[in-house]
Amino acid sequence: MPTKSFEERLERLEKLAEKLREGKIPLEEAVALFEEGMKLARSLEKDLSRVERKVEILTHEPVGEEGEPGLELFPELSEDDRE
């Protein structure tokens, strides 16, 4: 994954909130940290509100070191989903 993991981003956001709460940093830096924090929060919320998902089943194991695992979409039976 190109972006940092969810945990890393969340930890950074917590650290920023704490720094800003202390109030000891110069105003210009405070605004920069605030913007970074809001950007992180938006990306985290985006991850959290992700609803689309893909269900796959392993059909065959990868062959050798370079092989890829064979994955196919798993048919989710709708009769069982009645709730």
């Binding site: 969340l10 909130a17 800003l20 709460r21 924090g37 929060a41 985290l44």
Partner: peptide, 23 residues
């Protein structure tokens, strides 16, 4: 964890805003 995390992120956002607002 998803809903808890969402609440946590909301809380942090609110904290950020409050801190800056105060400033």
């Amino acid at each position: 964890s998803a809903s808890e995390l969402l609440a946590q992120v909301s809380g942090l956002t609110a904290s950020l805003e409050a801190s800056l607002q105060q400033r």
